[in-house]
Structures are given as structure tokens and as C-alpha cells.
Design a protein around this nucleic acid. Structure first.
Lengths: 187, 187
DNA sequence: AAAGGCATGTAAGGTGTTACATGATTGT
DNA sequence: ACAATCATGTAACACCTTACATGCCTTT
């Protein structure tokens, strides 16, 4: 049994990008700089160490070019184990607590999903996401009622911020349903 | 000139909560456990060290009860410096990059805002938030067009995830405007 | 007198951030 | 020859997470 340690979102993002096409660390840095993938700063200082970790764990394989020089160039590609890890990550159930604590991570999974899943499976994921989100909304509504009933030292803007949170998840649920139809109708 | 080091969101959250009412570390732990404030796990292992840091920097003051025993109890309240820090944090302009990288932090600022600002100032903040969000949406739309035009190795779900991001900021802009009216109409 | 909630803390480990350092290649 | 860009890496630092340890107080 391989070590079950889970990866960070950054590591999964790298794995997912390399899975789309083999890349060097520098190219991956550029992608993070120029595209809104995740909300990381993601400078070389985090990316190269992450790539090295992934290589050490055997999820990524590096083909070394310019080998003789002191500044070799490494082109990464995803190994079997890496693809397996990615698939497990992408297909994991959408847990309510995970959704609450790490919505970015859930969307990251979705973004890399179509390298692994059939449209029908993607639709199922979106349906599950929509359901879990509804559960979360119910929780937040309960909390909203509680702080309204007991007029605590809870501030006005505090309540309004909570309402934003709720509207935010409503938007997620709407998007998930809309997108599920889109994907389904493309066959 | 006092050290300008900025605090973490957790530290600001603690400062803001203690500003609403003096609290012990344990009570603050309970608040994080039972309410959807921020998306932290926020167990004792992060809260107590954070409180100690804030005390060391003179932003929080602890009144010690049960002093003679080996397990004293500390009730925290916010110092002048602490209130000043909070006010500066809350009233800082809404920067586009900050909004993109740390939306939670911006909403946290809003949640603690009414301890410091008049309704009119809160409305101004929301207006600024709405404008900055529109800028961000424009950026994301540009990026969306780019990846549509150049049909790269960009995946279908990747594009859909980007669309979620855009819808998400649209929802934020809507909320900001709606909430601005609400606050304005309450005088 | 035992249980459970109140209350505070430490230690190990991993990760992200910033800033810095360095070498290779390409274009002008 | 020089600058810009390609390309990789390290070091210091701070923070969060998890797990663990400990003691006080109230209720039964």
C-alpha cells in the first residue's frame, strides 16, 4: 500500500497541469502568473519544491535535458501513480465540511475533471455538488436565524457578511445545476 | 513608529471578536467551532499562540484571573493600539489584487466594520468593493476570451470553472450594491 | 469520587512567502 | 557585448495543523 498522504492544492494543480501537457517548472510558474488558476501567489519558491516532492513520491517523472551543464532543464510528465492519484482526488465524494473549508480545492478538482471522467460522471459530480451545497445553505440559514433571534452582540455588518456567504453558496448551487445541464446536453 | 507588520486574518478576526466583547481564549475557540466565521479549522493550537502574539505586540491586554493556580484564566480586551490597528485594517482601500487573492479577508474586514465606521462610510466601502469587483470581472472576461479564441489544451471543465469564478464575482458585485442600498436606507 | 466541560498550552511537522542567487540561451 | 528571458534553486521566517498533555471546576 502506497503512502496515503494527501497532497496540497498546489501539488494537485501542478499534477493536473502537467497531465494536460508535459511542462517545465518555469512554464508552470508562467501559467500561475498569467492565469487565474487558484488564488495562489505561487512563485518559484513554492513551485520548484512542490515539483521535487512530487517527483520524490513518484507521481511525476522528469526528463532531464541539457544534462551536462550546471543548469539542467527538466521536463515533467505524470507517471502512472500520478495519474492514479489525480483520478482518486478528482472522483472523491464532495464532502460538506471540505466544501466549506476548501471550496477552491473542490473547484480545482472540477477544472481537471474531464481528463478522467465521462460527461455523465461529470454531471453526477455537479449534482452531488449542488446537493451538498444545499445542505450547507441550510446550515448557514439556521445560523442566520439563531443570531437574528438572540440579538447578541453580533454586529449588523457581521450579519450582512453572513448573508453574503449564503448568497455565495446559492450562486454555487445555481452554477452547478446550470453547468450540469450544459454538460448533459452536449452528450 | 510602531512596527508596521501586518497581521494574519486569524489575528484580525480575534482582535475583532475581542473588540465586540472581552473574551477568554476558550470562548474564542468555541466561537470558531460553532459559527461560520472565516473558513479556518482554528483549534487551540493556532488560537492561543495568536493571542499571545497579539498580547506581545500590545494590541491585546490580558486580565489574569485565578492567578495563584497553575492554570490561570486570561480575559482579553483590546488596547488603544489594537483598536487603532483594527481601524486601519478595516478602512484600507479595497485593492484588486487583494480582493482576488484574499476575498475572505475583505469580507472579514466588512464583518467588523460597524464598530468603527458610520453607515455612510460603510456604504462608501461597499461602493468601492463593487467597483473593484467590476474591474476584476473585466480581467477574467478578457482571460475567458483568450482561452476561447486560442483553443489551447485548455479543458472544457477548466473553462467552466473559470465561468464559475466570474459568476462568483458577479454575485459579489450584486451583493455589494444591494447591501449598500440597505445600509443607506437605514440612515 | 468520577465524569465532563472549562481552560491553557507545547511539540513536531509541513508548507507557503519573500528575497536572494545563479547559470544558460537568445536576440540585438 | 549586452540585455532580456529562460530556468532552477536555496534560506529564513512565520504560520497552521494535528496531536498530545495538563490542570481546574462543577455536577451528579
Amino acid at each position: 500500500m502506497v503512502s496515503k498522504r494527501t497532497l496540497t492544492n498546489l501539488e494537485y494543480a501542478l499534477l493536473g497541469l502537467v497531465n494536460q501537457a508535459p511542462q517545465t517548472g518555469y512554464q508552470l510558474c508562467k501559467i500561475f502568473e498569467t492565469s487565474p488558476i487558484g488564488h495562489y501567489s505561487s512563485s518559484p519558491g513554492s513551485i520548484y519544491p512542490a515539483l521535487n516532492r512530487l517527483e520524490k513520491r513518484g507521481l511525476l517523472h522528469a526528463r532531464v535535458e541539457r544534462q551536462s551543464t550546471m543548469r539542467p532543464r527538466r521536463v515533467f510528465s505524470v507517471s502512472q501513480d500520478g495519474r492514479h492519484s489525480l483520478r482518486e482526488w478528482v472522483t472523491a465524494p464532495v464532502d460538506k465540511n471540505v466544501l466549506f473549508r476548501d471550496e477552491d480545492g473542490v473547484m480545482l478538482r472540477f477544472a481537471f475533471m474531464d481528463a478522467f471522467l465521462q460527461p455523465a460522471e461529470t454531471v453526477a459530480f455537479l449534482q452531488q455538488l449542488s446537493d451538498t451545497t444545499s445542505d450547507l445553505i441550510a446550515d448557514l440559514n439556521r445560523h442566520h436565524q439563531e443570531i437574528s433571534r438572540a440579538s447578541e452582540a453580533h454586529t449588523a455588518t457581521g450579519t450582512l457578511a453572513l448573508e453574503y456567504g449564503i448568497s455565495s453558496y446559492r450562486n454555487l448551487a445555481r452554477w452547478a445545476k446550470r453547468t450540469a445541464s450544459k454538460v448533459a446536453n452536449k452528450n
